[in-house]
Design a protein around this nucleic acid. Structure first.
Length: 117
DNA sequence: ACATTGACGGGCC
DNA sequence: TGGCCCGCCAATG
């Protein structure tokens, strides 16, 4: 649809990436307290690119969202300031295992595959 | 335009 | 249970 597009000389490609970023951040913000989700889950929720891209978004724009609610597939804590993340889990009552990892069996929460609105 | 790195995932030892 | 390797996708320098 629609022709267009040539009115913006230097920001078109960035808009596409920014849209993806916005979708990812939206999912992270939608994660309920005391629950956690994985990078792969977010990747599937938004629809793609790979889990690595999700991590890239978080590292760049994740500073504005509850990044601590995002853990790896095995439940290991998010990088950087993992101690702060642990504090959040204790506050929110997130199930933690002995090794200091999140108990995905208890706190695993999967976003809707259709973000929609 | 090329090569490298990276907030990952899964498999194997 | 923990550590090591490979593969996947895209941005950044």
């Amino acid at each position: 649809m629609s022709p267009v597009a040539s009115d913006s000389p230097v920001d078109a490609p960035l808009a596409d990436w920014d849209d993806y970023v916005e979708a990812v951040l939206s999912v992270v913000e939608s994660v309920p307290s005391g629950r956690v989700t994985t990078y792969g889950a977010i990747a599937e929720a938004v629809g793609s690119r790979g889990p690595r891209s999700v991590g890239r978004v978080m590292s760049t724009y994740g500073g504005s969202v509850p990044w601590w609610r995002v853990v790896r597939a095995d439940g290991s804590l998010p990088p950087s300031h993992d101690e702060e993340a642990l504090a959040r889990y204790r506050e929110e009552g997130t199930g933690l295992r002995a090794s200091g990892r999140v108990d995905l069996a208890l706190a695993a929460w999967w976003p809707s595959t259709s973000p929609a609105s």
